[in-house]
């Protein structure tokens, strides 16, 4: 798979990671080698294998619609970097 500097830029933006020019170049090379390695899997014949979404032999795990206790407000906001009365505070976002 072709990984360009722009691909890395796009992905780093999606992950909100700031990368400088040098890092973008370096990571493009590294990411490409990782993906090339994973591409080895393509050599396998999986014609008769169903795609799996999960690896554990589990399904239909449910809970009943019964209330359980929520956290006390102090506990909820304890580690918030910014709070305002009963709210979490975040840098202003505009829709």
């Amino acid at each position: 798979m072709d990984i360009t500097k722009n691909t890395v830029k796009h992905v780093s933006h999606l992950a909100r990671i700031d990368l400088c020019d040098k890092e973008l170049d370096k990571l493009a090379v590294q990411l490409k080698s990782i993906l090339d390695f994973i591409d080895k899997l393509k050599e396998l014949d999986v014609k008769d294998v169903n795609a799996a979404s999960h690896i554990l032999p589990l399904n239909n795990v449910f809970r009943e619609d019964t209330l359980s206790e929520s956290l006390p407000l102090e506990e909820t906001l304890k580690n918030a970097p910014q709070k305002n009365d009963k709210f979490f505070g975040v840098p202003k976002v505009i829709e």
């Binding site: 305002n84 975040v90 840098p91 202003k92 976002v93």
Partner: peptide, 12 residues
Amino acid sequence: LIHKENCSLVDF
């Protein structure tokens, strides 16, 4: 989200 003058407030 509730938008205030300098920040936004979040109720989860």
